[in-house]
């Protein structure tokens, strides 16, 4: 099982889809080998909401790991960043969850 990290702003930006259990496109950092991936994935706050999911650390724009308990991510598909446009979210998006 791998461990990943992503920025909180992308939870906020995609919150409606995450809450509805839909896939989102996000950029994640794999801690085990320090690699970055653009993926199509499902995300949940608790492991029981996404069986088979892997650990996801949430960090804020300052870089701090903010969630007391890790979230969960299930990667559906790895995407090619040269093929799929992924625009950084503005910092102004505030968490709604």
């Amino acid at each position: 099982m791998n461990k990943y990290a992503m920025f909180e702003v992308y939870l906020a930006k995609n919150w409606a889809d995450i809450e509805a259990g839909k896939e989102i496109i996000c950029e994640i950092f794999r801690l085990d080998d320090a690699s970055i991936h653009l993926v199509k994935a499902k995300i949940a706050k608790k492991p029981e909401e996404l069986p088979g999911g892997e650990e996801l650390i949430i960090r804020n724009d300052e870089g701090a790991w903010i969630a007391k308990n890790p979230w969960v991510i299930k990667i559906i598909e790895e995407l090619d960043p040269d093929e799929v446009e992924f625009t950084p979210a503005p910092s102004a998006i505030k968490p709604v969850y």
Binding site: R59, D61, E62, G63, A64, F86, P88
Partner: peptide, 20 residues
């Protein structure tokens, strides 16, 4: 074109967060 950069432990002694 823009992409996220950071965080990184910086020369000022703090972790500098997400940067575009």
């Amino acid at each position: 074109e823009r992409t996220d950069e950071g965080p990184f432990g910086e020369i000022t002694g703090f972790t500098h967060g997400r940067n575009v």
